[in-house]
Design a protein around this nucleic acid. Structure first.
Lengths: 158, 158
DNA sequence: TTTCAATGGTTACAAATGAAACCAGTTTGG
DNA sequence: CCAAACTGGTTTCATTTGTAACCATTGAAA
């Protein structure tokens, strides 16, 4: 028999969201305070820095962003001259995006900060706790990809 | 020596955010599809359902929402006649919020759905994985409350 | 008391977001 | 071939959000 109330503080979806929100908000200093980037812009930069050249669609897949977010982030980074677009030879709908020198410089500057952030975050935990969060997140990620809870259609984001 | 790139897929802040976003988005069906509630509205309902009567400030603390979100959510639930405000006797700035019969009915309807969602979500994991995610989240939550990573001021949300 | 800082809550405005419509281009099937 | 369906990406519009300013009230200090 269901008890009639839900304890929000123990409700996993809520806890997860609150935690992610707090962490993300804190991390956003790295890109927001320093360069005035939004999260989609940061992710775009990170994707291109990591992979070299990508299309907008690929970016959306890699960094779990809606295509409109990608589109807008790309436009802004282009405006800053942090990336350039080059047309695809075979398919004229596609554009290949690449960081410019300036974009790459910003990326290179941020990478160590990002890593330091993650390191410091994990440093607060014991070895077991680190293992727990990392493998717990991995497990849920893996299961979420497959079928969505209580629903029979897949949540595509782009 | 730092490698010069960051692997986004393994970066904890990103993974956490993406996971929370996916879970939350999926869970939002429960309140969005059924009743057209927003997340702040759902949280407000959940807070009041759980605690009976609360002030807006208390709601913000309990459910980690900015005061403007609380204010707007309360206004909307009031418009629906799912809650009522009663003035505080001693402090006329304060309002005590309570669910009406209709609000309580909606809450009671959603509680089992929320619990089922969480149950099904966790059911996909092995016992060890469940322990991992739950204790990992708890550990990070606990450490985050204390001092923020790489910054020396506290992130208050209300 | 009167003034001034703090607090509960709302509002105005700008920015970020999501959904859906849209515009090329491309592919597929007749 | 050619129409219809599809895909990469952009734009429009409505909604949601965050920041800061704000109003009213209260508490503290002088």
């Amino acid at each position: 028999m269901e008890p009639e109330t839900l304890e929000l503080e123990s409700f996993l979806p809520y806890r997860l969201y609150r935690l992610a929100d707090a962490v993300s908000r804190e991390f956003s200093r790295v890109y927001k305070d320093r360069h005035g980037l939004t999260r989609p812009e940061w992710r775009t930069l990170a994707g291109l820095g990591q992979h070299g050249t990508m299309t907008a669609t690929e970016l959306g897949e890699q960094s779990a962003m809606h295509k409109t977010k990608v589109s807008r982030a790309v436009a802004e980074l282009e405006r800053r001259r942090w990336l350039v677009r080059t047309a695809d030879e075979n398919d004229r709908r596609v554009e290949h995006l690449t960081l410019t020198k300036a974009g790459l410089a910003a990326y290179r500057e941020m990478v160590p900060l990002a890593k330091a952030f993650e390191r410091e975050l994990l440093a607060r935990l014991s070895a077991e706790e680190r293992t727990a969060i990392i493998s717990g997140v991995a497990a849920l990620e893996a299961r979420l990809g497959q079928a969505e809870v209580g629903a029979n259609h897949i949540e595509r984001k782009n």
